[in-house]
């Protein structure tokens, strides 16, 4: 069953003014429960606006957002409930930390849900575990942590609300390779254990290729492509026209295919080796 369904979703900034600009134009699609979706598109393609309509931070100019089959704007007064079900981690989320201790900050969301303080703290502890924050961190001030640790606290703050859908906008932006790898594997781990739906907005095609089931490509306010990761990255030329690229490894194999060698689309190093090995062995050049 679809957890999120968009019907002719349109969002226009500054409607009725001479500066109005349609950021999302007539997008219809549906996302199944338990999927991990990669969202790609260059800056200004409409992807940031699109994800902000999913948890009701922006109200569509026209069209509908259905969450578990129900229009989220059916009762505008209850929009806060939608934000607990669709968790959103913004870019550079560490800038939203404000509490005295790590644990209190993570418990802010659950507290707003109306849970008792004890329940909220329980939730916070579970969420902290997902992002690899040990008990030693609980009573520390979030402001004395390193950049990567702050980021994980902020993500835990959203995970703690136990949303059905988790949206992450560029969660690895600005992290070094080590921090990026750790965070990505934590997100994958969380997704596997909880089995909920995750949307990952990213500029890193390598990351998206590695973890997404399906990919949504936004281009000039439209949903230009939406399909299984392998199929999307097989359309490298089209992506390049939209100012996007494919992972380097995918590009290497695509070039070989163009030149006539029978290799498939590879998303990871392992797949590339698997594709190339039989051919190389046939070439018989192994030393």
């Amino acid at each position: 069953m679809a957890v999120i369904e968009l019907k002719n979703l349109t969002y226009t900034y500054g409607e009725g003014t001479p500066f109005c600009r349609t950021a999302v134009d007539n997008v219809s699609l549906s996302i199944e429960k338990g999927e991990l979706i990669g969202v790609i598109g260059h800056t200004g393609s409409g992807k940031s606006t699109l994800i902000q309509t999913l948890n009701g931070l922006l109200r569509p100019t026209s069209g509908q957002v259905l969450l578990n089959g129900k229009d989220i704007w059916a009762e505008p007064k209850k929009i806060r409930q939608v934000r607990f079900q669709v968790g959103m981690v913004f870019q550079y989320p560490e800038y939203q930390l404000f509490e005295e201790t790590v644990l209190k900050d993570i418990a802010f969301g659950p507290g707003n849900m109306g849970l008792t303080p004890e329940e909220a703290i329980e939730r916070a502890k579970k969420a902290a575990a997902f992002v690899g924050l040990s008990e030693d961190f609980y009573e520390k001030s979030p402001f004395e942590l390193s950049g990567g640790e702050k980021r994980r606290v902020a993500i835990a703050g959203v995970i703690a609300m136990d949303p059905d859908v988790l949206i992450l906008d560029e969660p690895t932006a600005g992290l070094d390779p080590r921090g990026r790898d750790v965070l990505l594997s934590q997100i994958i781990g969380y997704h596997k254990v909880r089995g909920n739906t995750v949307l990952l907005v990213s500029h890193s095609m390598e990351d998206v290729a590695r973890i997404a089931d399906r990919i949504l490509v936004m281009n000039s306010s439209h949903a230009a492509m939406f399909g299984p990761t392998r199929e999307i990255f097989a359309r490298g030329a089209e992506l390049e026209q939209m100012g996007l690229r494919v992972p380097q490894i995918t590009k290497i194999l695509a070039s070989l295919r163009e030149r006539g060698w029978p290799v498939g689309t590879a998303l990871t190093m392992e797949e590339a080796v698997r594709e190339l090995l039989p051919l190389l062995e046939k070439g018989g050049v192994r030393a």
């Binding site: 902000q52 931070l57 913004f90 989320p93 800038y95 802010f108 707003n112 703050g157 959203v158």
Partner: peptide, 16 residues
């Protein structure tokens, strides 16, 4: 602009 962003982020965490 930053105030705007922080407000959105806290609203997303259910701040009322």
């Amino acid at each position: 602009e930053e105030t705007d962003k922080i407000m959105s982020a806290q609203k997303a965490r259910g701040a009322d």
